[in-house]
Design a protein around this nucleic acid. Structure first.
Lengths: 258, 258
DNA sequence: GACCAATTACTGGTCTGACCATTGCACCAC
DNA sequence: GTGGTGCAATGGTCAGACCAGTAATTGGTC
């Protein structure tokens, strides 16, 4: 009795589970984009589920735009698979890594405006918060080794968030937030490398200091300029990193081809 | 028209239709937020549809986060009605209409950059497409009355989309797209009013013409300037509209209070 | 009266098997 | 070859049954 109570995922026969299993099969490449899925009746047998439940499961996938269904024809796997339904952009990063720099371009624009508005509209309370976040980050960065990269990244993010919030434009805050999430989820590994090296880290620290000073001093133009420089240099650093890893890959291939 | 629409809609017995009818009932206030819906069996009778179809309809509403369902309990109307679930920002518009202008502020920024990049990076093919979209829109706007506002809005959107695509930055295109969707879903009614009036429409037309010319001529700075002006004046027009409707509401309240 | 367990009458969740509507293809007459 | 025509497969809908949770009611116990 106690054993049979275990919820074995493969055994549960709920539409959500049906959708999850089919999605996994698609991700595993069993069903490929553009391909026609087996008929509903066949899927019923294969997944050991009634047609009603199966159909509700298919409806879930349809609402996620993972499949496309036509009466009398069947269900086909959508050609553009949204890896994360949160970001229909995600697939771009798989196809074209160049998109990363497009993202940084847009982010620089928003980050610049955010710093500009923060310097111009920020209240004294905003400034106090920004300074607090800055000190938390700077103190941690200056402490003795070893530095936990994850923690530093969180503090960094909190600092930039405080600035954007001081812009008093919720839409700007939200848009910036989504782009940052997207960035971190796609290239967190690269960002980690950035923090790991002494040179880039110090440059970033200096830029943060200047950004903080400009915003708190209320110098909007200067704040925007520094923010843009900041993003530009991050972009350049990532570009160098990319070139470097390509060199490594090529040499690895040379070794493998022996 | 309303009657024939209702009859046509009420006759079809598809899950999409079930969802649409229930959604309308909720919007009409027949079922209020927080309230428990009638049981599935009762809804079947009332909507003249099988339970299977009804359940698929409910699943649609559930995926849109319009209702919340618990086994053995029932389905309750969600307390925060997301008019469009696409954006977690939507609730802001209900609470603080000021957010609309924050949105326009961000959009102006992106639209400006988009025009700038389009003028700088656009290929000859891009320019042809932009001109084509512009002509479609302008031709329609100049034709004899009556103008279908919905159609004009679509052409307008297509024109701006073509420009953003010429920026060759997919992230920019996507971000701009989401913000535009958000804008249209929140204040489409207002935008309609904008198009309905002769004065604003002509101003918008002139700005579109200048924007088109600047982008096609490759004058990046000018393109950005015109795009910013464009968004600024739209913002001002909406602000006037808002003030006007407030005056109307106040006078309506005076009448009601008699 | 206050508390707690069992009962019961709901609710949504799933299953079955049937029929309807559309599609696409093989077949056939021209 | 071309254009119908029929058929088989597909998704879409239906009806009725049973399973599984929920919560109010009941009835007993202290």
């Amino acid at each position: 009795m106690t054993l049979s109570n275990e919820k074995r995922v493969a055994g549960r026969r709920t539409p959500e589970n049906v959708a999850a299993r089919l999605e996994q099969l698609i991700l595993d490449g069993v069903f490929r984009p553009g391909q026609l899925l087996p008929s509903e009746r066949r899927l019923c047998e294969r997944l050991k589920v009634s047609r009603a439940s199966l159909r509700e499961g298919l409806r879930i996938l349809r609402s996620k735009q993972i499949i496309d269904t036509r009466q009398g024809h069947g269900s086909t796997v959508a050609s553009l698979l949204p890896m994360h339904q949160h970001s229909p952009l995600m697939h771009l990063f798989n196809d074209h890594p160049r998109t990363l720099f497009d993202l940084l371009e847009v982010r620089a624009l928003l980050e610049g405006e955010s710093a500009f508005l923060a310097a111009r509209r920020g209240t004294s309370m905003d400034r106090v918060l920004i300074t607090r976040r800055y000190r938390e980050m700077a103190d941690y960065a200056e402490q003795a080794e070893p530095i936990e990269v994850e923690r530093l990244a969180r503090l960094d993010h909190a600092f930039h968030l405080a600035i954007s919030q001081a812009s008093h434009n919720p839409v700007l805050v939200h848009t910036l937030q989504s782009l940052t999430d997207l960035l971190l989820s796609s290239v967190f590994a690269s960002v980690k490398h950035l923090y790991h090296r002494e040179g880039p880290r110090e440059m970033i620290n200096r830029q943060h200091a200047r950004l903080h000073d400009a915003v708190v001093a209320g110098d909007a133009e200067q704040a925007k300029r520094v923010a843009l420089e900041h993003l530009t240099s991050i972009s350049e650093l990532l570009r160098e990193l990319e070139a470097e890893s390509e060199r490594l890959e090529r040499s690895a291939m040379r070794i493998e081809s022996w």
